[in-house]
């Protein structure tokens, strides 16, 4: 951990470690967000605030509703109720692409690189405000050639930073799991987001790459962006996050600095204690199975 703290990190020291705690400078504020799937409440968040300029981790057992919350906040799913805002802009029923344009960009748990496009084309796609993406201008190359060159050089810089420059002309489908995660992150940066939301950035990444990925995530904060990530890898959570929000059964059950959360009895009960050594994927299936059975019963009734 860096010795000197930014103002944003320092401010967190004053925040109460209660679920839904108010932050001094929140970038995202939401309340009353619920989403049900066939009678099962996947998300039921009373209040949530994300501090600007720091790395916030969202943890919790599988099925806790973390990814669903991600989907809701970014407009990829519609909640049953609730309101939330980003930088003061209300985001209820704002479509996903507009959320991204506002500066809130997410990645996916199962990476969504465009396998049949080359790495550099994947990157170029990320840039916003492209003249050449307008139907009427697109056929005339001289109108967008200049901008395309700018975009390409920015993309090349990012590829170099993420050590993907050697793969520039390869099809993205040929990359390894870890490289795909890197490419997705780099592509998200092409949008130049204020808040970047990473859904399990460490899943399926080989250990050798993990350390450099951690460095990349920290570098995002260091260049002034806010990071929110979902993660199971407790090492990662402990090492790089400034703040941790714990979810279980759709609700936020605890919040705090990594040290205080790991010591919190509620967290140990809800998450670490009970299933500390169990394989999380088994839990997931059990939960899903229960869900399916519940639905079948419901239909029969």
């Amino acid at each position: 951990m860096a010795a000197e703290l930014t103002a944003a990190q320092a401010a967190l020291a004053q925040v109460a470690t209660d679920p839904g705690a108010k932050k001094p400078d929140p970038i995202v504020v939401g309340s009353g967000i619920t989403r049900t799937f066939g009678g099962l409440k996947a998300v039921d968040v009373e209040h949530i605030e994300i501090q600007r300029g720091v790395i916030t981790a969202l943890i919790g057992p599988n099925g806790a509703g973390k990814t669903t919350l991600f989907n809701l906040l970014t407009g990829f799913d519609e909640p049953n109720s609730g309101q939330w805002s980003f930088n003061g802009n209300a985001l209820q029923s704002v479509s996903a692409y507009k959320v991204a344009r506002l500066g809130m960009v997410r990645t996916f748990q199962l990476t969504k690189v465009l396998a049949k496009l080359t790495v550099i084309e994947n990157m170029r796609l990320g840039a916003t405000g492209q003249k050449g993406e307008k139907f009427w201008l697109a056929p005339f190359k001289w109108l967008w050639k200049g901008q395309e060159d700018e975009i390409t050089s920015r993309a090349d810089d990012l590829l170099a930073r993420f050590k993907l420059d050697a793969k520039r002309e390869d099809f993205a489908g040929s990359l390894s799991g870890g490289q795909r995660k890197l490419l997705e992150m780099a592509r998200a940066l092409m949008v130049d987001p204020e808040l970047i939301m990473l859904d399990e950035p460490m899943a399926g990444v080989n250990p050798a790459l993990k350390q450099s990925l951690l460095g990349h995530v920290q570098s995002l904060r260091d260049e002034g962006r806010t990071v929110l990530f979902v993660e199971h890898d407790m090492d990662m959570v402990r090492h790089i996050s400034d703040w941790v929000i714990v979810m279980a059964q759709g609700q936020i059950v605890a919040e705090g600095t990594p040290q205080s959360v790991m010591a919190d009895q509620r967290v140990i009960d809800a998450y670490l204690g009970a299933h500390h050594d169990t394989d999380l994927s088994e839990l997931d299936e059990a939960a899903l199975e229960a869900e399916v059975e519940a639905e079948i019963k419901e239909e029969q009734a």
Binding site: E285, L288, E289, V292, E295, I296, E299, Q300
Partner: peptide
């Protein structure tokens, strides 16, 4: 579809093929 084993299995598969296979 409601009462027989095969009927229930069909509905389970249509709900969640991956899970049905794994179970």
């Amino acid at each position: 579809m409601m009462k027989t084993r095969m009927g229930k299995a069909m509905r389970a598969v249509s709900d969640n093929p991956a899970l049905s296979a794994s179970s």
